[in-house]
Write a protein that binds this DNA or RNA. Structure first.
Lengths: 350, 350
DNA sequence: AAGCCTATTGCATTCGAAGTCGTTTTCTGT
DNA sequence: ACAGAAAACGACTTCGAATGCAATAGGCTT
């Protein structure tokens, strides 16, 4: 097309002598003296090409630096080998690890990652719009999806796996970490160590996981005869945890704080130790949930429940691939349990 | 084709009544009673479609949930609207923030992010192979590239912007943060406060940025008459910084440690305070470089130089887009300067 | 009302690789 | 050496959208 234009324009100006040609299977075919079909077959598994032809083609491809065009492949095979990974906020300190593991594992399976991050939950519809356009084979979502949105995946036959969330009634594949066991251990351990006055730092009120967590802890505390536990909320950030802890400690005389995630727990530890001069764990036990890297740091040594991120991402990836290959596989909920990490931020009896 | 097959096979078996049709521009066209061309034009900027036709088409598209197939668009327009983001190790605590900003800014420009992470530097060639296949319009790379690899981008006319690295001789667009100014301030401030015995915790020996940093600090120290500064190395991780600091402190009687990044500096602080019982900053000043979130935490309040990540990613994205649109734009090196954050981990005089 | 001009529209082609199908070449076995 | 089977090969079509071009419709001028 461009060429045509240049030819019709009478002059001989050649603005780009080294016009970069993409290098297509036709170019390789011409150079190797074979058909385009042969080139195509040469680059696919299990197609029959004679060793002689293959050598010719590979040599030609090599000289041209030819690589099959994945976009064209995607169009004809209806398989883009793309998977959307949608993560609500990457600044969460817990998610980068998840993301790194997911991309590594998907890459190992020959799948590329199309990354979408959400600054606000409201962006999700725009993101999904792009997801539809790019003909992804599947998606791993660590963000809140409405039933309608999940249904949209089903309608379009796009495999979907939720990470650290469940469908909340909608049948869908999901991977998450149950906190019941860890929670029980933590609560019972704290109670056994003599804690009586608890405070909870929860996530935002609209966080499903967060709420379940709070309910679970309260239920367990109730069993131990402890009721009316004060709850404050943070946004899963250090500052949020710090502020919430200050409010709790100002209003109540606590001997244990249970935070919904590690980073808030670290904020709470600092609020207690540094701002309020309360010794941790002697006067106040603080526990978190996640097992992020900074929780291990010597200044904190947080007592927490570590999520098995490696196994969870592994599960998410294999569930996704299963569903890509077998689209009508039913919903499945895979629950992992966390490991209790006995740090030094809480007095905890077994 | 599938339809043809079903018709020729005499029987009337219809294995999937709800056969999921992708919903193409042809389907929309048929439904709206117009040509496929009209549908295409209706979804592009600046194409002429009468208001009447547009309404018809949009209605039909809406009913079918039609979205243009970005893969097919990419094939014909030779613009995938995909950009590869290649990051060496996401677990670095500094990169998640960068990644989040990059994807947000690229998304805002209508560009999708194809994410590649490297567990080892050696994987880069496999990653590039995939990058070529996916016909990305450009790439932002925060990883070490050989001159040959950079040349490969040029050959294929793929826009390239290095992040936090420079070409090291090879002409290429790059964004980075110069540390000279921050370094000078830090070193001079420490010297002014009376520090004489320095130790440096550098990154791995093969890290270009890391090395330049070390040389810069040494040069500035030399000006103050301080030579033979002991250097130990970490891998930019907390544990690495912690271990390096222990070695340095065991072997020398230091009054200041300069670390190549924040996370190592935090490890060093803990090594000093907790393992060696050295007061920071009274007996030992520790400074870092980056300005990651945990550096601000109350337990640390690290004195550091904060990289202007927002402006840097902004620059990377706009440089990349410029180069996508104007492929023969020359190399350009954009240097930002960091802000000195006066924390409480160092005695520093202005 | 005739003559122009411009805004719409559809047809046909194109992007690059995959896959179908019919043809040719290469093996086997006898 | 020959029939028959299997492997290798190439022409052609296809995926879904974009676009040059020609045809048409509509509006405006005089």
């Amino acid at each position: 097309m461009k060429c045509a234009n240049r030819q019709t324009s009478g002059e001989m100006i050649e603005p780009k002598p080294t016009r970069r040609r993409a290098g297509t299977s036709y170019d390789v075919a011409r150079r190797a003296g074979v058909s385009q079909s042969a080139v195509s077959r040469c680059f696919r598994e299990g197609e029959s090409v004679s060793p002689k032809t293959r050598a010719l083609i590979l040599a030609a491809a090599d000289e041209l630096g030819y690589r099959p065009n994945a976009i064209a492949q995607g169009l004809i095979t209806r398989r883009s080998n793309l998977v959307a990974v949608i993560i609500s906020n990457l600044t969460n300190l817990y998610y980068p690890e998840v993301l790194a593991e997911l991309t590594a594992k998907l890459s190992a399976q020959g799948i590329r990652v199309l990354l979408f991050t959400l600054a606000a939950e409201s962006e999700i519809d725009q993101v999904l719009d792009q997801v539809w356009r790019y003909q992804v084979d599947g998606a791993i979502v660590a963000a809140r999806l409405s039933p309608t949105q999940m249904e949209a995946f089903r309608k379009r036959d796009i495999a979907l796996v939720l990470y650290n969330r469940d469908g909340g009634g909608t049948p869908v594949a999901s991977v998450s970490c149950e906190f019941a066991a860890g929670e029980t251990l933590l609560v019972d351990g704290l109670v056994a160590a003599g804690c009586r006055s608890f405070g909870i730092i929860a996530g935002p009120a609209d966080s499903t996981v967060g709420e379940a967590h709070v309910r679970g802890v309260c239920a367990r505390l109730a069993i131990a005869g402890i009721d009316n536990v004060p709850v404050d909320r943070g946004d899963f950030s250090y500052e949020g945890g710090h502020a919430a802890a200050l409010r709790l400690l100002k209003a109540h005389d606590l001997d244990a704080i249970i935070a919904a995630n590690d980073v808030m727990a670290l904020g709470a530890m600092d609020a207690a130790r540094i701002d309020c001069g309360i010794a941790v764990p002697e006067q106040l036990s603080v526990v978190g949930y996640d097992g992020v890297a900074p929780a291990k740091w010597r200044s904190y040594r947080l007592t927490t429940v570590r999520q098995p991120v490696g196994r969870m991402t592994e599960a998410a990836v294999s569930m996704l691939i299963e569903r890509i290959e077998k689209p009508d596989l039913g919903p499945e909920r895979r629950l992992f349990s966390g490991d209790l990490i006995r740090g030094e931020s809480a007095r905890l009896l077994p």
